[in-house]
């Protein structure tokens, strides 16, 4: 029985294993999930997919996560999308910079799948 009004989530990470892990952790039962493997792909898909939330890895080939975030926040169409930054603790500084640039939360890799789902739910609840 498919839930109506499933929240749309876009996962952006260049590692396929990690993308799949997040998909599995969140579960397609509860969310409508789109994926992108680069910043460029994310920006290209975002207007079409219109996600409620983006899980955005910071270290990406090409345009990095912070750039993507800035572009999203500078576009009227996309600036209201909830964003969670994801990266290793080594990039904490960048994540803090991301928070001040408009990100709603960050998650440190490696993450607990349950913790990921809990955080996503919590933030979506807050922003709706």
């Amino acid at each position: 029985m498919a839930k109506v009004n499933k929240k749309k989530i876009m996962i952006v990470d260049d590692e396929e294993d990690v993308v799949k892990l997040m998909v599995a952790a969140l579960g397609t039962k509860d969310f409508d999930i789109a994926t992108a493997y680069s910043g460029e792909e994310c920006l290209e898909k975002v207007e079409r997919k219109k996600p409620n939330l983006i899980l955005l890895d910071i270290i990406l080939p090409g345009i990095d996560g912070l750039e993507v975030l800035k572009k999203l926040k500078s576009d009227v169409q996309t600036k209201t999308i909830t964003t969670i930054l994801i990266s290793a603790s080594a990039h904490k500084k960048q994540m803090e910079r991301g928070l001040s640039a408009g990100a709603d939360a960050y998650i440190v890799k490696p993450f607990d799948p349950l913790e990921l789902k809990r955080k996503v739910r919590e933030i979506l609840k807050k922003s709706s």
Partner: peptide, 26 residues
């Protein structure tokens, strides 16, 4: 070291994550 650490972290994310998923019974 920084690069290696980062490079190690992504596979660790997968190892830990998938282990967790299996443990969760997914």
């Amino acid at each position: 070291v920084s690069n290696v650490s980062h490079e190690l972290r992504s596979p660790m994310t997968s190892i830990k994550g998938y282990t967790d998923l299996i443990l969760m019974g997914i």
